[in-house]
Each structure stands twice: as structure tokens, then as C-alpha cells.
Design a protein around this nucleic acid. Structure first.
Length: 732
DNA sequence: GCATCGGATTTTTTT
DNA sequence: AATCCGATGC
């Protein structure tokens, strides 16, 4: 590899890039040139060690990162990069699964179920089982299943401790059956199936393990157990596993990221080489110091000293707004002012927040100020109804067994096939051991179909839809994707259906046409690839169009990016440490890391904003408490509202603290051990509820740090209540 | 089978 | 505030 290129790196980075073969662990702080090291490493493998690119596998966590790395690799080694396997875990697994589809319980035309599809399927499971959706929320069941899958736990091995667990196991089992019946898999299955194949078929494992002489992994701290397992197998021949990560930037625990993977790596690859990248090339020292002050409050981590050769720079600014409107206005005004000074590009600015919902006020404010903006995520393009409809049609054409898509489009636009008829079709299909879609296709044969008679009057309507479906399927073979797309829309009169003569109707049609543009990009690759990438890229980490405008995104979406000036809004308790993390020490540590990730995105200037009053997710305005994370920022790094703020609070005697701190709200104190050890309520106990009246406790269990009690009320309703909130009175 | 109204219900982050 | 669900009426 080029000497000139190496000269661009600092000694640590160089050491990482030219590390000898074998297992390597690169611990890389924020802004330490991690992506650069990864891309140069690839260039070094190809150019220096003469490894053919197709023997290299590079895995990233998000599409954004994959895209970025791809662009950078191409820039260095150009067309030499062709053949390189580079993508997200899910994309790589998809690639393997398509090749090994024979070993799957589904065929190669399988579709990937997104969250909505999963929920629809789970609802079907719950309905079948005839259980109360209030007690067994589809999302919560799916969560449990996802967690199990991330830990490589199959239905049969699902750990049972409570009655509920037993139920979940049953739902899990049935859910998997239905997925197969739909010729579908969910995101987690992609990993699980891949792991399964690698484990059960040594020949297949050796094939890939042999092929991938070098495996590079980005964001290793965010991998889950299934992903580690896959890496382990893929590296089982050459043992050249090169992982890069930063424990302080682990923000996906909730999605199954398993910190123990680091321990597993150390155990499985003894003698690995460890390299630390500590020098920061991004932020000023003030920003780094502030960020370190925050992250150093976390336990169980190696302290790292982030340093830069940049100047101290400006202090971190703090602004406390009156309310959430004021907060948004402040940010937009500050950005607008800075832009008018003329030194900064519009795209130098980014605003980050904890939840997508927080973008709304900012958007309004930007529009009012007449400033264009880029919004990452939020209102997902692919989540829009019209887009989902169109994709569902394509999915059904590709895979007629997809029950969820079928249910979505069979009467959209309305064509006289209502719930009753769909139900009848499903029942009938089950009775002849087929799926609804297969019966539909057969019905298209008209009189020759044996299914026509049994379905009676409705048979004809269904048959005409079946005929449409058959026509479309024929088009896949010969025609272009865009033709198919147009034909479907025309056949079902979709534009008429969408166009309600309102602005919104117009927008919707625009969206459909935008989707058509995406379809055209897949003309060469085919329907299957198009659908797969729709499922896998449905995420907004498609870097939004490169236009010169300030950017808004969640803190999660901000990982891996950098901006000259960063605003983080909503630094309030319940929002930046999010409420949901309040009672969970691990989750709280993750909130802190999330804040840390956000802070370290800033190159020049970091501004933190909070609002004293804020409209809560439901209805009215509420007073807020400042985020506990703000307490950790040393005074000398802060400018702005702090003084005002402290003086307001310092009227309360807080004692002679050496460094003045903000008042600690009372509710922070009893954080520990609010988790009850034993249930207060027992089965059979008689209780009274202020609204539901008297009832008998069915069961009570400790769940998520609180007690959940299910009560059969005398008036005939069964409710699951949170004990600490329900105000239940025990009747003697 | 479809449209409409009223009531209940909302848990954050993303592949 | 917005969306979803179920019941009701046509």
C-alpha cells in the first residue's frame, strides 16, 4: 500500500492499518478516524497483501455506514474494490441466504416482514389463540421473541418461568409456523437462519469460512449474540477477525447488542492484537472535556483520555427555554444568525433529539423562518400508506403466499371483497391445505378451477382478482419492473383511489411516483432484490439527499456523523434520560452514552438546550426537570444560561457544596431498589379499584421493575394493572 | 360491505 | 393530538 497514504495517518492508526494477520481489536474513541482506519485497512489488504477483494468481508451496522465506507474504499482503490462483500449484517445474511435458499424452510422468493407485517401476523396469532390483546400486547410479545432470537433461542428452548412465558413460547412457535406458511421471515430470522445454517452444515460453513480470508467489523460493540455467532463461524478457518468498536458508543442494547461479545472475542481469539485510537480529529478540547465529564460517570468501563491538537475552542453553550416552542425558536434563530454571518455552510449545522416526535416543532420553526432543512428518519417514506400499498402489491406478485400483503391489497382500492369474504377464502384455503394466494391464482383459471364452486357467490369476485394477479406474475418473467409497476397501478385504478382532490391526495400520488423511480433503479437486478432492499433499507439511514441545509435527526441516527455546530435539544429528565430508562441502571447508562455520542458529533461548537415547560406526549403542558446529565458538566466549560438557572435554584439551601451543582430533584434519590421483591397481591385476594370496583386477583407478577397484577373485576372485565399506579385497595 | 362516529389508547431509539 | 378499534347505521 501507498506510503503516501500511510503518511496521512498517526502512529496508532498506522499500526492498526498494517496490523499483521490474525485477530485484531481496535478500540476507537469518537472522531479518532475509525472509518478511515477501516477503509485503509481494506486498501492495505488488497494493495499491500494482495488479498483479492472477494475474499474480504466488511460488515457494518447501518446502511449509512456501509454506503459511506463503500464510497471511501472506492475512492482509494477504485475498481479494485469490486467483489468485496460490504454491507450490513442483514444485507450480508440476505446474500448468503439467497445462495443457500435450498436449506431454508422457505423458498427463494421469500419476503422479509417489517415491523408492521410482524404485528399483523402476531395479531393473527393472538386472535387464533383467543387471548386478550390487552394482556398480551402484540408489540410486547414480538419484543420478547426478538430478544430470544437475538440470543439464538428457538421456540423449543424458550425459558419458562411464569405462565406468561409459557404463553409467549406458544405464540413464538405459532408465529414461526405462520412466517414459514407466508414464505416469509423477519429481520431477526435473517440472522438466525444464517447462524443456523452455518452451525448445522459444516460444508457450507467451511465454504464461506474458506472464502472470507479477512473479516472486518464496524461498531462491534453493537453486535448481538446471533451476529457474533455468525462472525465466529465465518472466521473459523482463517481467524482473521478485525473488529472496531467503542464501548462508550454502545447505544443498541435495547435491540439485543450484547456487551459480552467483547469477552467472547477475547476468549475465542486469544493472542489478539489490541490497538487504542485516542487522538481525536474532530472536536475542540472543550467539547471533548465536556463529553468526558459526562461519560466518566458511567461505571464498568475503561476510562479513556480523549485529546486533540485543536484549540480549546468555544465553551459549550447552554440555553434554558421557557417552553418547547421557545426551544425550537432559539435553535432556528441561532442557526439562522450563524448562517447569516456567512462563515458557515448551511449543512454545517445539525440538531439532535431523543425522540422523533421532537422534530415537529423544529420543522415548523424552520419553515416559518424560510430555511430548508434535511430531516433524517421520522416520517418514513416507506412507512406511508400509499407506498406500503404499492410495495404490498409487488410483494404479493413476487410471493403469493404472503398473507399479510394479500390482506392489505385484496380490497385496496375497494373492490367488494370485504372481511367476510377474505375470511371465507382463508378458511377454505386452509381446508384444502393451500394459502389464500394460491387459491386466488387457481381461481384465475375460471371454470376449470376446482375452487370456484366451493366459494360460491364470492368466488367470481375473487377469481377476477386472481386473474389480475396471474397477469402481473406473467409480466415479471418478461417485462420490466417499471412496466409491471405501471400496469398494477393502472389495473387497480390506484391514482383515482388516491386522488381525493386534496393537497394530501396529490402528495400521495407524488410519493407513488417517487417509488416508481426507485423501482427503475432495480430494473437490472429484479423484483426479489428490489423487495429485499426495500425491507432492509426502509430505514432512513439512506443519507438524505446531499443538499446544503441544516440537518435534524435522532441521537441514534447521528452516530458516525459529524457537524461543525451541533444543537442537542430536550435536555430534560424524562426525555434525555428517557422515562423508560428511569428504573433500569443499564438503560440509564445507555442514555448517558447516547448523550455522549451526540456531544461528540460536534466539531466547533456544541449547544445544549432544554425547555422549562413542554407539551407531554399526551395533551397538556408540564413542568420539566433539567436532565441529570447537565449536572455533570463542569462550570468552566459552560457558558450561557447556567448562572440564571442556578440562581433560581440556589435559593434553596443545598449546603456548602464545593462545586455548585444544580438541585437534585427529589425523585432521583430513591432510584435504587424500588423493585418489589415479592408481589404484594396474591392470587385470590379481593381488591377494590377506584374505577373498576371490586374484583379478585387472578395473578400477580414482578415485571420490568414493578408489580403487574391481573384482576378479574366483578363487573366481568379482566385488567392487567401496574400495582404502584393502580391505587388498589386490599379488601380484608 | 362500507362509512361514520365515539371511545379508548398511546410506551424511544432501528436492521 | 392522533390513531386505532368496535359498534352502529345504511
Amino acid at each position: 500500500m501507498d506510503k503516501e497514504l500511510l503518511a496521512l495517518l498517526n502512529p496508532q492508526q498506522q499500526k492498526a492499518v498494517v496490523a499483521p494477520e490474525g485477530a485484531v481489536l481496535v478500540l476507537a474513541g469518537p472522531g479518532s478516524g475509525k472509518t478511515r482506519v477501516l477503509t485503509y485497512r481494506i486498501a492495505y489488504l488488497v494493495g499491500g497483501l494482495n488479498i483479492p477483494p472477494h475474499n474480504i468481508l466488511a460488515v457494518t451496522f447501518t446502511n449509512k455506514a456501509a454506503k459511506e465506507m463503500n464510497a471511501r474504499v472506492e475512492k482509494i482503490i477504485g475498481s479494485h474494490a469490486s467483489g468485496l462483500w460490504l454491507g450490513t449484517f442483514h444485507a450480508i445474511c440476505g446474500r448468503i441466504l439467497r445462495r443457500e435458499a435450498d436449506l431454508l424452510p422457505v423458498d427463494k422468493n421469500y419476503v422479509i416482514f417489517d415491523e408492521d407485517d410482524q404485528r399483523a401476523l402476531m395479531k393473527q396469532v393472538l386472535k387464533e389463540a383467543n387471548v386478550d390483546e390487552k394482556l398480551y400486547r402484540p408489540n410486547s410479545i414480538l419484543d420478547a421473541i426478538s430478544r430470544a432470537k437475538n440470543d439464538l433461542t428457538k421456540p423449543a428452548d424458550y425459558p419458562i418461568q411464569t405462565f406468561r412465558d409459557e404463553k409467549i413460547r406458544d405464540f413464538y412457535t405459532r408465529y414461526q409456523q405462520l412466517l414459514v406458511k407466508n414464505n416469509a421471515m423477519d429481520f431477526d430470522d435473517m440472522l438466525l437462519y444464517t447462524a443456523d445454517i452455518l452451525e448445522r452444515f459444516p460444508v457450507i460453513r467451511d465454504k464461506y469460512a474458506h472464502r472470507f480470508e479477512h473479516i472486518l467489523v464496524d461498531e462491534f460493540q453493537d453486535t448481538n449474540q446471533a451476529q457474533y455467532f455468525i462472525l465466529y463461524h465465518l472466521a473459523s478457518k482463517h481467524h482473521n477477525l478485525y473488529v472496531v468498536g467503542d464501548e462508550d458508543q454502545s447505544i443498541y442494547r435495547w435491540r439485543g447488542a450484547d456487551y459480552r461479545n467483547l469477552k467472547r472475542f477475547e476468549k475465542d481469539f486469544p493472542g489478539y492484537l489490541k490497538i487504542l485510537l485516542e487522538q481525536n480529529y474532530r472536536s475542540t478540547q472543550s467539547i471533548l472535556d465536556a463529553a468526558m465529564a459526562v461519560i466518566d460517570q458511567n461505571d464498568n468501563r475503561t476510562r479513556k483520555k480523549l485529546f486533540t491538537e485543536k484549540t480549546r475552542g468555544e465553551k459549550v453553550a447552554l440555553y434554558e427555554a421557557m417552553d418547547d416552542h421557545d426551544e425550537a425558536e432559539y435553535v432556528v434563530k441561532a442557526i439562522s444568525r450563524a448562517m447569516n454571518l456567512g462563515k458557515a455552510k448551511q449543512s454545517d449545522f445539525a440538531t439532535m433529539y431523543r425522540t422523533n416526535a421532537q422534530s415537529r416543532l423544529l420543522e415548523e420553526e424552520f419553515r416559518r423562518a424560510g430555511i430548508n432543512y434535511r430531516l433524517v428518519g421520522a416520517q418514513r417514506f416507506y412507512g406511508r400508506r400509499e407506498v406500503k400499498d404499492a410495495i404490498a402489491y409487488l410483494r404479493l406478485v413476487h410471493n403469493p403466499r404472503d398473507q399479510v400483503s394479500l390482506a392489505r391489497v385484496i380490497n385496496t382500492p375497494p373492490r367488494g371483497i370485504g372481511d367476510k369474504t377474505v375470511e371465507k377464502l382463508a378458511q377454505y384455503a386452509a381446508s384444502v391445505n393451500l394459502t389464500s394466494g394460491e387459491v386466488l391464482l387457481d381461481l384465475a383459471l375460471g371454470d376449470r378451477s376446482v375452487h370456484l364452486l366451493p366459494l360460491g357467490r364470492e368466488g367470481l369476485k375473487l377469481a377476477s382478482f386472481g386473474k389480475l394477479l396471474t397477469t402481473w406474475r406473467a409480466l415479471v418473467e418478461q417485462g420490466s419492473l417499471a412496466d409491471l409497476f405501471d400496469r398494477i397501478l393502472k389495473d387497480v385504478d390506484y391514482q383515482v383511489y388516491i386522488n381525493d382532490r386534496s393537497e394530501e391526495g396529490f402528495d400521495r400520488w407524488e410519493n407513488v411516483m417517487e417509488l416508481r423511480l426507485v423501482v427503475m433503479e432495480y430494473e437490472d437486478q429484479g423484483l426479489g432484490e428490489f423487495l429485499e432492499s426495500m425491507a432492509l433499507v426502509a430505514d432512513q439511514d439512506t443519507l438524505p439527499e446531499v443538499m446544503d441545509a441544516p440537518t435534524m435527526m435522532t441521537l441514534h441516527a447521528a452516530k458516525g456523523l459529524e457537524f461543525e455546530q451541533v444543537f442537542i435539544v430536550g435536555l430534560d429528565e424524562m426525555l434525555l434520560p428517557h422515562v423508560r430508562s428511569r428504573d433500569d441502571v443499564e438503560a440509564m447508562a445507555e442514555e448517558r452514552r447516547l448523550f455522549y455520542v451526540g456531544m461528540t458529533r460536534a466539531r466547533q461548537k456544541l449547544t445544549l438546550v432544554r425547555a422549562r415547560r413542554r407539551r407531554s406526549s399526551y395533551g397538556s403542558y408540564e413542568e420539566t426537570q433539567p436532565s441529570r446529565f447537565l449536572d455533570d458538566l463542569p462550570d468552566d466549560l459552560i457558558e450561557g444560561e447556567r448562572r440564571t438557572y442556578r440562581s433560581r435554584l440556589s435559593s434553596a439551601p443545598t449546603g456548602p457544596s464545593r462545586t455548585p451543582r444544580w438541585e437534585v430533584p427529589a425523585f432521583r434519590v430513591p432510584l435504587k431498589d424500588t423493585t418489589p421483591k415479592e408481589t404484594k397481591y396474591k392470587s385470590g385476594m379481593r381488591v377494590r379499584h377506584p374505577i373498576y370496583g371490586n374484583g379478585t386477583v387472578r395473578i400477580s407478577r414482578i415485571e420490568l421493575g414493578d408489580e403487574t397484577v391481573e384482576v378479574n373485576f366483578d363487573r366481568g372485565v379482566l385488567k392487567a394493572l401496574v400495582a404502584s399506579l393502580a391505587n388498589l385497595e386490599i379488601l380484608g
